[in-house]
């Protein structure tokens, strides 16, 4: 918990310019939250007297709210003192984490926060919502987390860290991605197919690059089936539409047989993720 007697400005700024005006204290998440921690935190910036005694329960209750409501941030700023010595919150900012939504349904309903409101910094595009629908079609694995970009290079990539690495790599070699996405957790053929179809159908996208870091749970052959099926269902030639397939790992021998059959260019682990990204950019 933090307390500052310099309200009304960004707390990060106060911490930088006036560190002696910011009190910090850790509190236990196991013990019931009681007043002493808040009292210590507030007293550490020199507040005493009746102000200390009036402020302490405010901070205690804010901390309790933070914990009980699964907040990632609970901030009252500014908190104002009236002439009679009482305190009033003039503004407040609360962030709840997505993972806790299921158990905070009642509160979210009361506040009118709908299911579609996420913590992302901008509203989801139509393309991104279509990606969510693909991921939601069954519960096997992930083929989603689609984010739209304005480039022309279609990406069917994974997993969490692999996608971040590959997206950077494509941009490093001058590629302009049409999208970001993540495959992981061994999705169904249908889900991988749905994701590939979505990307292939995006206006401006000519080819897709299918790339992941070495997989151990997700299966190479299952993803290969999915992306090839996507091409076939769109009456496209997989050999032409898939610029590079670089997914080494579990069931790769089987996956490579499928790719061979359709003449799709692929690479094993001896081609690095960055090399694969470079090939994808060159082919687009």
């Amino acid at each position: 918990m933090l307390f500052s007697d310099m309200g009304g400005i960004d707390i990060e700024e106060v911490a930088e310019t006036h560190p002696d005006h910011v009190g910090r204290r850790h509190f236990s998440n196991l013990l019931p939250i009681s007043d002493f921690a808040a009292k210590e935190c507030i007293a550490s910036v020199g507040v005493t007297g009746s102000r200390l005694n009036r402020l302490t329960p405010i901070l205690t209750r804010l901390a309790r709210l933070f914990v009980e409501r699964d907040m990632t941030l609970a901030e009252i700023n500014p908190l104002c003192e009236l002439e009679d010595g009482t305190f009033v919150a003039l503004d407040a900012h609360m962030d709840m984490e997505n993972e806790a939504r299921p158990r905070q349904k009642a509160l979210l309903h009361e506040l009118g926060v709908g299911h579609e409101e996420t913590r992302q910094a901008r509203e989801a595009t139509e393309f991104e919502l279509a990606g969510e629908a693909v991921d939601a079609q069954d519960h096997r694995g992930v083929a989603g987390n689609v984010t739209e970009f304005d480039g022309d290079l279609g990406l069917v990539i994974g997993a969490g860290g692999g996608s971040l690495t590959l997206f950077d790599a494509v941009r490093k070699y001058g590629g302009k991605p049409a999208n970001y996405c993540e495959i992981g957790g061994n999705p169904s053929v249908e889900k991988a197919c749905g994701l590939a179809k979505l990307v292939l159908s995006k206006p401006g996208v000519d080819k897709i690059a299918v790339m992941m870091s070495i997989v151990s749970n997700t299966r190479v052959d299952i993803v290969a089936r999915g992306v090839i099926k996507a091409c076939l269902e769109l009456n496209m030639d997989p050999a032409e539409k898939i610029s590079i397939f670089r997914i080494p790992g579990a069931w790769e021998e089987e996956g490579f047989k499928i790719l061979d059959h359709y003449g799709v260019r692929y690479a094993d682990r001896t081609t690095s993720m960055h090399e694969a990204a470079k090939l994808a950019v060159e082919a687009s």
Binding site: E99, G161, L164, D168, R171
Partner: peptide
């Protein structure tokens, strides 16, 4: 070290990859 997600610096508040992977400050 290897650092992935450099592109995220241009996109504060957006989460990618893992739950903890978000530029907040």
């Amino acid at each position: 070290a290897f650092m992935a997600g450099r592109f995220m610096d241009e996109m504060p508040g957006m989460s990618f990859g893992h739950a903890g992977t978000i530029v907040e400050g």
